[in-house]
Design a protein around this nucleic acid. Sequence first.
DNA 1: GTTTGAACCTGGAACGTTCCAGACCTACGC
DNA 2: GCGTAGGTCTGGAACGTTCCAGGTTCAAAC
Lengths: 337, 337
Amino acid sequence: MHVTNAETRPTLADVAARAGVSKSLVSLVMRDEPGAGAETRRRVLEAADELGYHPDSRARLLRSGRSRLLGVVFGIQHAFHVDLVTALYTAARDSGYELALSAVTPNRDETEATASLLQDRCEALIMLGPQTPAHTLARLTTRLPVVVLARGVRGADVIRTADADGLHQAVDHLARLGHQRIAHIDGGRAPGAADRRRGYREAMDAHGLSRHVQIVAGGLTEEKGTTAARALLDQSQPPTAITIFNDRCATGVLDVLARGGLQVPEDVSVVGYDDSHLARLAHINLTTIAQDVHTMTKLAVARAIDRIEGANVAHRTIVVPPHLVIRGTTGPATTQS
Amino acid sequence: MHVTNAETRPTLADVAARAGVSKSLVSLVMRDEPGAGAETRRRVLEAADELGYHPDSRARLLRSGRSRLLGVVFGIQHAFHVDLVTALYTAARDSGYELALSAVTPNRDETEATASLLQDRCEALIMLGPQTPAHTLARLTTRLPVVVLARGVRGADVIRTADADGLHQAVDHLARLGHQRIAHIDGGRAPGAADRRRGYREAMDAHGLSRHVQIVAGGLTEEKGTTAARALLDQSQPPTAITIFNDRCATGVLDVLARGGLQVPEDVSVVGYDDSHLARLAHINLTTIAQDVHTMTKLAVARAIDRIEGANVAHRTIVVPPHLVIRGTTGPATTQS
DNA sequence: GTTTGAACCTGGAACGTTCCAGACCTACGC
DNA sequence: GCGTAGGTCTGGAACGTTCCAGGTTCAAAC
């Protein structure tokens, strides 16, 4: 006999007893599967409601052998990751899978974040701009499907933006506005940085501006942006336009410009990268290269699920085109220069 | 295509078979419980390692009736929440409990975030600055322990900062520097905003500056900061110092000042609130009121666990004192004003 | 009047753990 | 010699589901 105790939550058996049917039938009804009559279904639902029954996902998942969980590893401090996670939630909404977040923080590295998701028996991993070495990722891939977002790497599924193309668009835009001394503050060894550097160089060449190519060491953070910007401004002939590795770094640059008494875009034009929520802030209002977060996350979820359900495509990279978003930090080059 | 049974992960039984012992014994060893001989223990661990065995938390939790999970509801867009989550991870590290994150995003409200954690059978909820109405929180409390961080609310455990005290410290600091026209940009209806407003007013009174009290409507975001700052600067006699609801809002203010050609702190001093990572950025370098994130998160985790383990203290609020962090955005009032 | 086949429902065996009661040793005190 | 007490180890019953193979019923088709 099952005694309903205040401490223990009601179970399938309790509901079954109350509705006068079998556990199996209640199970069916709870999952909204066919195979139960309308009237019985109603009675079962009523009983469940009265008891305040909620299915126990642990037991459910244990039995079905599945967790229906997509693990997400992300850097909680990264503006762009935050945007991606936000979009991932909506991308996963109707997929029948849930997201399990695991954050990377200054005190919690990627290995730890990943391990905790594995323990939860996630069925696939979506990793945002992971720093994990390629061979470690490859090993992970043998355990479960891994989709890497915003970083190119062999051996796993990758969804990334056409980074070089993004910088082409940035340079094209600036060149159209008459700029010639266009500099680039890069992202060092960060994922995507190399491609963006290359794109910048190619585009400058294409516009016949090779002699004005100038690449300054930057990084992912505001800090790096400020030091890079100071270095640029210290020159005898500072650039009239700057393309920057990402938006976060760009805000550091903007800050240095403002403090230096330089008007944006009158004196200097600035283009960021990511179109993260930072760029959209009214007081930043940054012209930037948008990564198509919506598409990228949709593709990532879809690919993860395909893999889970056994699609045996070779590991493949999907490249999503970026696009220019013109806001207030770019304007025509002044004639004097 | 692999021939190995990549489909099924190794289980306790597999390890037991390989080591030539019973499931129960392996279970003991895996949990590091006493009751197994040194040599057997070694053999079991070896077998587990060779098979790449990892315990299945679902089954484990199902059987033990516990999840050892602390659910965390947080706003992924909020700089301060990000700091709190970061600290929560380290606070929970050696507690024997894991964190389950559930983010609130523009498309995923608190109700949804909470529901998903309940389904995972979290044993307690830690909610960061929740917007959920008090009576809904109270109902939640009947289902499981709820610890609210950074918002005062009756009926649940609350860990919060002495917000009024924080503004006292800010005003004291500015008054000591000789400022008189000290304004406050508030946080509207945000958690804590009312207390900070009150603290500001009290402190101004205490310094005999009642006639200079000026409160401008602000908010949580950079945007709100910029419009509030513009309103302040438009006056015939703008303030020489500004205290602001939070750091994020303060960066908006700083930006307006910089663009307006005003030097900080020479022309205007600025004090933020939270000491979030924003404030520490070299180019922001914001004087601010630090909430003691370390202590708050430690207390939150401890309280949650106390509740889980049956400590039956009455619901109680713990107030943590804030402290002033002097950085570069405050300086002596200029004599001329 | 039998057969057929949906539509509805049931019982019991998994899933991979933990927990409990007890079995088997060996050593020890008397 | 006996009883007892630890220290090791084992078998099997939970935990709350889902899944599978079947069992009724009842109306329509032969």
